[in-house]
Computed example of a mutant assay.
Amino acid sequence: MNFPASGRRVLISGASRGLGRAVAQAFAANGDRVAVHYGSRAEEARATLDSLDGTGHTLVGGDLAEPAGAAGVADSAAEALGGIDVLVNNAAVNIRHPLPETPYEEWVALWQRHVSVNLLATANLSHLAARRMIEQGGGGRIVNIGSRGAFRGEPDHPAYGATKAAVHALGQSLAVSLAPHGIGVASVAPGFFATERVAPRLTGPEGAAILAQSPFHRVASAHEIAEAVLWLASPAAEWSSGTILDLNGASHLRT
Rank of each mutant, 00 (worst) to 15 (best):
N2P: 02
P4D: 10
A5L: 10
S6F: 08
R8F: 15
L11W: 01
L11H: 04
S13G: 08
A15C: 08
A15P: 00
R17K: 13
G18L: 03
L19E: 04
L19P: 01
G20N: 10
R21K: 15
A22K: 05
A22H: 09
Q25R: 15
F27M: 10
A28Q: 05
G31C: 11
V36H: 11
H37K: 05
S40T: 15
A42I: 09
E44V: 01
A45L: 11
R46D: 01
R46M: 03
A47L: 06
A47F: 04
A47C: 07
T48W: 05
L49N: 01
D50S: 13
L52S: 09
G54C: 06
G56T: 03
G56R: 06
H57K: 05
V60D: 00
G61R: 00
A65M: 02
E66W: 07
P67I: 03
A70S: 14
G72R: 12
D75R: 15
A77S: 10
A78N: 11
A80N: 13
G83R: 04
I84N: 01
I84V: 14
V86I: 12
L87E: 05
N89G: 08
N90R: 06
A92H: 09
A92E: 02
H97G: 07
H97K: 02
L99V: 12
P100F: 09
P100C: 11
Y104H: 14
W107R: 09
W107H: 15
V108N: 10
W111A: 13
W111Q: 14
V115C: 10
N118E: 07
L120T: 14
A121K: 03
T122N: 12
T122H: 07
A123W: 09
L128S: 06
A129R: 00
R132F: 03
E135G: 14
G137I: 06
G140D: 07
I142S: 11
N144P: 11
S147W: 04
G149Y: 09
E154Y: 02
E154V: 00
A159Q: 02
A162S: 15
V167E: 06
L170R: 00
S173R: 05
A175G: 06
S177F: 07
L178E: 09
L178G: 10
I183N: 00
G184E: 03
G184I: 02
A186S: 14
F192C: 05
F193S: 01
A194G: 05
E196C: 04
R197G: 06
R197H: 10
R201D: 12
R201T: 03
E206N: 07
G207P: 08
G207R: 01
G207D: 13
A208W: 02
P215V: 10
H217S: 15
R218I: 02
A222S: 15
E224N: 12
A226V: 12
A228F: 04
V229P: 02
L230D: 09
A233Y: 04
S234V: 05
S234P: 07
P235V: 05
A237E: 05
W239Y: 14
I244K: 11
L245V: 14
N248E: 14
L253A: 14
